[in-house]
Design a protein around this nucleic acid. Structure first.
Lengths: 141, 141
DNA sequence: CTAATAATTTGGAATTATTCTAATTACAAC
DNA sequence: GTTGTAATTAGAATAATTCCAAATTATTAG
């Protein structure tokens, strides 16, 4: 079992507050949904899961909440080719492996320092705030 | 000036043939358009550029051609957050730097072996056919 | 050359993903 | 409690992409 995120439901309120944002029931339930099943769901999938718990929530709110969570870095958004954006609450440094056969996405833990190492290839004048590594291929299950 | 792609209009016919596909005027003009201005245009932008040369071409064909070129690895498709897919004919190993201020995309040449090096972090059973590295941040111009 | 076949292109409709808008609700400060 | 700001909501609007069936173009076999 690979390391899971250090983010917890408890840290949500604090992190939001640090950005001057409120913790709301909608934001909590969206975040908890991402923590519960870490399969990189789309906004639509999050919406479907969240509705069972909070039937009155709207899709627009799910989009808003996800955007908010991404902005305060509690969640990462990943884009694979063409399809809809997928969301991931894993806060440890990791890459994404996109299995072309199954369409599923796996987190790949990164050895310490790898991201910094990769950043050294940037020419002077380039200042990267984030690095995303995406593998595509097939994974033996 | 960084290295440019080794792909040429001449190699198009051969590469398509290798995949059992025909070289058509539409595929040629789409590919040449990508080679001409390497600014990672969207399908819509390619469509607009191509129309001046071939006014009868349809958007669906541009999508088809781009997809074909991606499939025979003459072109790479890159997805940044949310926005439309962008296309890049640079065949040398490179990463993408997405400037968050300007929205522009820069190719970053990779030192030889870096991609293989990055691939070594994959656990056993994972077989990657491609690796995409995306930086986000700001670039001094 | 000609017919038959296969590949490709086309325009438009349909679908999907996302954003926008205006109205409402919730919360916090005074 | 009123006022102002933030957040949510439903639905409309937009943007990106795919689908589809017909027309066109190229290729092959006779």
């Amino acid at each position: 079992m690979s390391a899971v995120s250090t983010a917890t439901p408890e840290s949500l309120t604090q992190t939001l507050a640090d950005s001057g944002l409120r913790s709301t029931p909608q934001r909590e339930v969206v975040f908890n949904t991402l923590l519960k099943k870490r399969d990189h769901p789309t906004a639509d999938e999050v919406f479907a899961r969240v509705k069972s718990e909070m039937p009155t929530i709207s899709l627009a709110t799910v989009y808003n909440c996800l955007e908010t969570l991404v902005q305060c870095r509690l969640v990462r958004a990943v884009n694979f080719e063409r399809g809809p954006t997928r969301y991931c609450p894993n806060q440890s440094p990791h890459a994404h492996f996109h299995d072309e056969q199954t369409g599923s996405t796996h987190d790949i833990d990164l050895p310490p320092g790898l991201l910094d190492n990769v950043k050294t290839i940037l020419p002077p004048g380039y200042d990267a705030s984030s690095v995303e590594i995406i593998f595509r291929g097939k994974a033996r299950t």
